[in-house]
Every structure is written in C-alpha cells, then in structure tokens.
C-alpha cells in the first residue's frame, strides 16, 4: 500500500509539472553577433551558388525593425537584409524572402542572392528577415512570433514606400508558414503573388504521417502551423515548388496546400529527384530563375 501511495505521488508530481513539448525542434536557430552574408561558410548545406551570383556588400544593407509580441506586450528588434537599392523601393519589384528553420539568415543568403538574379542581377530587390531568436534578432521563436515578425517585415516595407502590387512573398519551408498566414490575413498590404517552396501542410499532418497512429499532435507540441487550412483564405496567386523525393517535408504536404488554394491561376512545379533543400541545384539555377520569373511576370 505504501508503495502504491509513493507511486501515485510520483505520478501526480510528474503530471503537474510544466508540460514538456517538442516545439523547440521546429526552431533550430543560432544567435549571431555579426552577420557574414556572402562570406558565410556555405560548404555545409548551401546550394553551391557561384561567387558571381552572390550579392556584394555594395548592393545590400542590413536593417532592423521592431516586431511586437502581442501576447507578452513586448517589442523585439529583429534584423533583416535588403538586397537592392533602398532609395527606389517605391518603384521597384520587391521579393520578401522568408527563410527556413535553420540557424539564421546567413545560411540562406545564397538563396536570397539567387533571387536577386531574377531577370538579371539586381533587377528585383530581395528583402530577407531573421525571425526572433535567429541570428541577431532578439527574443525567442514561437508560432505567433513568426506571424508577428512577418508583420514587422511588411510594416518595414510599407515604411519604405513599397507598393503591394509589386511585392511578392517567397516562403521556403518554415517560411511558408508566415507567408501563408500574412497573405491570408493581412488586409492592408496584399502580396501581388506568393511562392512556396517545400511547405508543410500542418503539424497534425506531420505527426499523423510519422506515427501512423492518428495521435493528437497536442500530445507532444503546442504548434499547429495549419498551412493547408489557411491557404483557403489566400487570394494571391500561388507558385508551389516541391521536390518529389523530399524526405523531410514530403511532397504530399505541398499537394494538400496546392489543392486547397482557391485561385485558378496557380502554378505547380514538382521537381523530380529533388529533396528538401536542393531544388535550385537539381533543377539548375537558370531554369529555377526562369520558372520563378515567368510566374512573377505572367
């Protein structure tokens, strides 16, 4: 009887402790004191962009903006990089690039630089931000924080005079989450079009497909990321790009999102052989740029 009481007490203590969640796995960020941009070591995970296609320091600017945390009523300074001429934002085409889950925006500077080659080098401007908790940005990453950081980026663009009819949003992997959310629910600044590369459908979909047991995702995480549901509220035309052999976020995720988008003028680019992060290399930089450019211009 005594053992039973001890065991029951231990169970109650465990049960009443602060709940453990796996949310942190979604945000494997790394803090930085200084960005390296084109000097970052891309040998582990980069796309193999040639030096000639990288943005050079005379053509990019590190900027900061304020992201407001509505839950804790706190403001964070987050960092971004603008590739292009900031003095002509009002008349330029701008691509807001929302990067994936890893490390910080240094690790995505090659991808952002690649987009700065659309239609010729520096033809379009590219604006990339680090979410809170990433790189030099203050705070800690949360699902709500992604949306608020997306808002901060849009506010910054508005402050610089950007034209919503010339602003496109490109979300890669995790970046698809704020891209879809802001495209769906930000009414004062509608992206002209959105581009999603390797997006996930939802945390529930990942949990169900990974465990096969139909387990509630709430058992292990507080994250939802309901992209395939929110995309129903997006009116901006969509280009969806996904590797057929993606073994991290399987292409089924993107199919759900693409299928749920209400617009009729969508484009799907299913890339055979490509995995999660190697689409530009597999398809080839020229073809990749041509596909994105065609979508932007048509």
């Amino acid at each position: 009887m005594k053992k039973f009481i001890y065991l029951s007490c231990a169970v109650l203590v465990l049960f009443s402790c602060k709940k453990l969640v796996l949310d942190g796995l979604a945000f494997p960020s790394e803090e930085l004191e200084v960005y390296e941009f084109e000097n970052y070591d891309f040998s582990n995970g980069g796309i193999g962009l040639p030096d000639s296609m990288f943005a050079d320091p005379t053509n990019y600017t590190e900027v900061t903006m304020t992201s407001f945390d509505a839950v804790n009523e706190t403001s964070y300074q987050i960092h971004g990089v603008f590739i292009g001429d900031m003095s002509s934002i009002a008349s330029d085409t701008v691509i807001l690039y929302l990067h994936g889950q890893s490390l910080h925006m240094d690790a995505y500077f090659d991808r952002a630089s690649l987009l700065a080659n659309l239609g010729g080098k520096y033809n379009y401007s590219v604006f990339m931000i680090d979410y809170r908790g990433y790189g030099r940005s203050e705070g800690a990453s949360t699902e709500q924080g992604l949306y608020e950081d997306g808002n901060a980026a849009i506010d910054w663009l508005i402050g610089q005079g950007a034209d919503q009819n010339k602003t496109f949003c490109y979300g890669f992997s995790l970046g698809a989450i704020p891209t879809i959310d802001r495209a769906a629910y930000r009414d004062d600044f509608k992206f002209r079009k959105i581009i999603l590369e390797s997006p996930l459908a939802s945390v529930e979909n990942l949990v169900h497909n990974s465990t096969l047991l139909g387990m509630s995702p709430g058992f292990v995480t507080t994250l939802d990321f309901p992209n395939a549901e929110k995309i129903k509220d997006v009116s901006s035309p969509l280009l969806w790009i996904h590797g057929v052999e993606d073994d991290y976020i399987s292409i089924d995720n993107g199919e759900l999102i693409y299928g749920n988008h209400p617009g009729g003028d969508n484009v799907a680019l299913r890339v055979p052989v490509a995995n999660h992060g190697d689409i530009p290399q597999i398809i080839g930089f020229e073809v990749y740029l041509e596909e994105v450019l065609n979508f932007i211009r048509n």
Binding site: S202, N205, H208, L213, G214
Partner: peptide, 15 residues
C-alpha cells in the same frame, strides 16, 4: 499489432 480505430487522418485523408 497495433490497431488504429480512426478511419481518417489530418485533412480528412483516409487512414
């Protein structure tokens, strides 16, 4: 053997 009682998964996909 584990038996899954739910017939549908996320987004009403068949289990």
């Amino acid at each position: 053997n584990y038996f899954v009682l739910q017939s549908r998964m996320a987004f009403d996909q068949p289990q």
